[in-house]
Design a protein around this nucleic acid. Sequence first.
DNA 1: CAACATTCTGTCAATGTCATCCATGACAGG
DNA 2: CCTGTCATGGATGACATTGACAGAATGTTG
Lengths: 171, 171
Amino acid sequence: MDDIDRMLIGLLQEDATRSYAALGAAVGLSGGAAHERVRKLRERGLIRRTTVEVDPVAAGRGVLAYVMIDGNAWMGGTGEALRAIPEIEEAHVIAGPASVLAKIRASSTRELQAVLRRLFEIDGVAGTRTVVVLETFFERGVHVPGPSGAPPAGPHDPAVQARRKPSTSHS
Amino acid sequence: MDDIDRMLIGLLQEDATRSYAALGAAVGLSGGAAHERVRKLRERGLIRRTTVEVDPVAAGRGVLAYVMIDGNAWMGGTGEALRAIPEIEEAHVIAGPASVLAKIRASSTRELQAVLRRLFEIDGVAGTRTVVVLETFFERGVHVPGPSGAPPAGPHDPAVQARRKPSTSHS
DNA sequence: CAACATTCTGTCAATGTCATCCATGACAGG
DNA sequence: CCTGTCATGGATGACATTGACAGAATGTTG
């Protein structure tokens, strides 16, 4: 996991349709080497999968809301129950003012209401507090931290560096 | 935008490395036809882009938190100020108990604290309430609604149907 | 400490697969 | 009947994928 790997991930996050040749040229490597690195990144699970990003509005999911869910029991299978609701895009167990936080995308406030109704049918759900999103500034992928800035684990410098500084005379 | 388009989007969300031939076979179309449909979906902006999904933990971003930001001014350029912080993955203007909701991924609680400190340097930020995520049930892409279930806009049925049911003898 | 072995990662070239384009044909609606 | 839309099937060139080989970094041994 060096700088080149980080650059590759960044480039693929921007546009995963890039050819390996272009990818290699961008990081100062041959196409084959870039291919091999990306293959290993997938193998190691750092890159989970390749997917497409869908426009929520065009897909008829123009209403976004976050819901804090209060629970009165331990909610064993809550994760599965929430996963079964397609409008729920994320669900997390949280520490703080509620038990679970869910991200909901609906086609209308009316459908949002229907989803909330379904939440109450889940065992252990005692209450909900809904936060409606008025405008989204941005949504983006995970930022892969680089060596400059803040070191990932602490203030020790593992002296990672690019394995080579080629006189990259790519045209 | 018919059922076949929805299926194509769903398949591509699962795995965008699939070949167009496989894609076509899955929906009962030739490879060329599937290619043309996907091309139009991109053109229309329904598919924004192709990207890779990165494992946050492997990328050194094991700590996830949501932060509600209170503002005392109108915060004109707040969106840009938040975008400049790479640890912030999403930022939304919300209606309710705060002005802005941000999703933050940090490598440690210490780094999370550093991000919070940076938030207070933004003009108009008066306070924050942080919700730390203990466990993530799931995170997934936008669900594209189908005709069965709840119609997107209202109870009118445009009578969309598959154009053909070929005897797809794909091996 | 030096010579060697091992391993990792790169370049280059060959090959098969696949994206992409084009001409043609079927179907529905005006 | 004519026209626009959409699918098929084949041709072609680009690209993913693989294998052989080379150099550097690291570890091992005398």
